[in-house]
Simulated scan of single mutants.
Amino acid sequence: MLEATNITKSYGSLQVLKGIDVQINKKEIVSIVGASGAGKSTLLHIIGTLDKPDTGHVHINGQNIVNLQGDNLANFRNRHIGFIFQFHNLLPEFTALENVCIPGYLGKNDQKKVEARAKELLSLLGLKDRFDHHPARMSGGEQQRTAVARALINSPDIIFADEPSGNLDSHTAEELHHLFFKLRDDLEQTFVIVTHNEQLAEMADRKIEMKDGKIFSHI
């Protein structure tokens, strides 16, 4: 599904990624671990189209995403990729349902179908009674599950998560971790997750450890 080859990235004189090769298969949960500064988030942002490498190629379903620009890149990202971040990034002025619908609206999909899909996903994630709640009226776990529903709204090929449980208590984090595997099994969803959470890293189908801008080991 995803193949990245010879990915390098520097910021000024600091070389953050030093020739990364990685492959992600469909319906796979892969964790990326390593000390702070190892290059984990930089790699995630590049393979997730949020940043460009200095050298190398990234293919998702055969499409070289490094060459995409402007509207073509935005449209590809909207249709094929979902994102989950540590701090949810929900828009406070919108309800849970509205937040989940936004990527669907941006993709110019039918409004009624988008809203029906959003309700289906929120219900699946245990948020049937939170459709009309704004983020300020939801717990951290509820906000993060809303963010998961938002990532799923366009049925993406792959979801990238950057420290998705880093802002949650241990019990809520464990629930979120198990949710990822339920979504993998029920929806055949693929996840690439940067995490410092050892439990989540060990649960993954594969663990990629990074050190000093290189892949140190695959487990």
Results as ranks from 00 to 15, higher is better:
Ser155Thr: 12
Leu122Ala: 08
Ser155Asn: 14
Ser123Tyr: 03
Ala151Tyr: 07
Arg145Asp: 01
Ala147Gly: 12
Leu127Met: 10
Leu127Thr: 08
Met138Arg: 04
Pro135Phe: 01
Leu122Arg: 09
Arg150Ser: 09
Gly126Leu: 11
Ser139Leu: 07
Leu124Cys: 13
Pro135His: 01
Gly140Arg: 11
Arg150Pro: 10
Asp129Met: 05
Arg130Tyr: 04
Ser139Asp: 00
Pro156Ile: 09
Ser123Ala: 13
Arg130Asn: 10
Asp132Ser: 08
Ala151Met: 00
Ser123Asp: 15
Pro135Ala: 01
Lys119Asp: 07
Val148Cys: 05
Pro156Asn: 03
Glu120Leu: 11
Ala147Pro: 07
Gly126Ala: 10
Ala151Trp: 00
His134Arg: 14
Ser123Phe: 04
Gly126Tyr: 07
Thr146Tyr: 10
Pro156Tyr: 03
Glu120Ala: 11
Leu127Val: 01
Gly140Asp: 03
Ser123Pro: 01
Leu122Val: 10
Pro135Trp: 06
Leu121Ile: 12
Gly126Phe: 10
Leu127Ile: 05
Thr146Met: 14
Gly126Thr: 10
Pro135Thr: 09
Leu125Ser: 00
Arg130Pro: 02
Leu124Phe: 15
Leu125Met: 11
Leu124Asp: 09
Arg130Glu: 06
Lys119Gly: 11
Gly141Met: 02
Ile153Pro: 09
Asn154Met: 12
Ala149Phe: 01
Ile153Gln: 13
Leu125His: 07
Glu120Ser: 12
Glu120Asn: 12
Phe131Met: 14
Met138Leu: 13
Leu122Asn: 00
Ala147Thr: 08
Ala151Gln: 03
Ala136Gln: 12
Arg137Asn: 14
Leu124His: 12
Lys119Leu: 13
Ala147Val: 05
Gly140Ser: 10
Gly140Trp: 11
Leu122Pro: 00
Pro156Gln: 02
Gly140Lys: 06
Pro156Gly: 01
Ser123Gly: 15
Arg130Val: 01
Asp129Gly: 06
Ala136Val: 14
Leu121Lys: 08
Gly126Asn: 06
Phe131Leu: 15
Val148Arg: 02
Leu127Tyr: 03
Asp129Glu: 14
Met138Tyr: 03
Gly140Glu: 07
Glu142Gly: 08
Phe131Ser: 05
Ala147Asp: 04
Lys128Ile: 00
Leu152Met: 15
Ala149His: 08
Thr146His: 12
Ser155Leu: 09
Asp129Asn: 11
Pro156Asp: 00
Gly140Thr: 07
Leu122Cys: 08
His133Cys: 13
Ser139Lys: 02
Leu124Val: 07
Ala149Ile: 04
Gln144Trp: 10
Ile153Tyr: 14
Ala136Ile: 14
Gly140Ala: 10
Pro156Thr: 05
Leu121Pro: 07
Val148Ile: 15
Leu127His: 09
Lys119Ala: 13
Leu127Cys: 03
Ala136Met: 12
Phe131Val: 05
Ala151Thr: 03
Leu127Gln: 09
Arg130Asp: 04
Lys128Gln: 15
Leu152Gly: 03
His134Glu: 02
Met138His: 06
Ser155Trp: 04
Gln144Leu: 05
His134Pro: 08
Asn154Phe: 11
Arg130Gln: 12
Pro156Lys: 00
Asp132Ala: 08
His133Phe: 13
Gln143Thr: 02
Leu122Trp: 05
Pro156Ala: 07
Val148Ser: 06
